[in-house]
Design a protein around this nucleic acid. Structure first.
Lengths: 136, 136
DNA sequence: CTTGACTCTATACCCTGGTACCGGGTTTAG
DNA sequence: CTAAACCCGGTACCAGGGTATAGAGTCAAG
């Protein structure tokens, strides 16, 4: 009934060794084993692996991702603390979203306005990103 | 007047060696030198370094960033091609924004609803992120 | 005119996030 | 019952993105 490591790897979009690596690093909980020693994963392991991949693409390190994931295995701390920590993560995410929106705007401006600029002029992309609100 | 490498490093928020590394990797253009061999950077180098840092936080590799930056030093290709490439980058960025918004929503849900969940239940964060639209 | 802060090149090293290969056991389809 | 396909742990290696150190030259203040 449990999934084998190869299933998790394939459906999660990573290699088999990566799953073992994530287990060692505490990103995927160590699953129960068959008498043979084979790991048997629950379905949720696949979602977890996919989450890890997506979060990485967004610039979170594995340590940050472990942190994010630990929010739901909330045995350690009170509900108040959990809310605090989640809010902090949301603030990180908001910052990323704002920065991405500014980059997007700068790129759109570049694409639309720049056919008129000279090749090496001080085009808008960097300037747009350096505007207030983008610096920290 | 020209900035010295230490100024660019400090005001750009990176170390001195990192500036030299970025120069070697073609992320920051090699600046003119004084007779002594000292680099003298224009102000724009600082903006450039800051841009690189921010883009990294958003999950772009240095290769991708070099690519992004090359859009403005558009001597190579026609305006049509530039628009194409910029649009492709915008699509990447839109994907990241969508994913971040879903993560944010999941975290907010977690913070607000979960005080009522049992500790190890299948809480919403992973599920929310696995919903359609988030998978690829 | 020297002393401390800064810069130069070059080489070596480090951490993160994996990937590849090994010799060996297991499971399953024919 | 055997061969293909899968899994095990262990070790070694790799690329990206820097960081550290060494040995030597430069510049600015007193």
């Amino acid at each position: 009934m449990g999934l084998k490591i190869g299933d998790v790897a394939e459906r999660g979009g990573v290699s088999l060794q990566t799953i073992r690596y994530y287990e060692r690093e505490g990103l995927v909980p160590a699953p129960p084993r068959l008498p043979s020693g084979y790991r048997t994963f629950p379905e949720s392991a696949i979602r977890r692996v996919r989450f890890i991949r997506r979060a990485q693409e967004l610039g979170f390190s594995l340590a940050e991702i472990r942190d994010l994931l630990s929010l739901r295995e909330n045995t350690t701390s009170g509900a108040k603390d959990l809310r605090e920590r989640a809010k902090a993560k949301v603030a990180d995410i908001d910052y990323k979203i704002r920065t991405l929106r500014a980059m997007k705007k700068a790129l759109n401006d570049l694409a639309e306005r720049c056919p008129g600029c000279g090749p090496l002029s001080d085009c808008p992309i960097l300037d747009a990103l350096d505007a207030k609100g983008m610096i920290a």
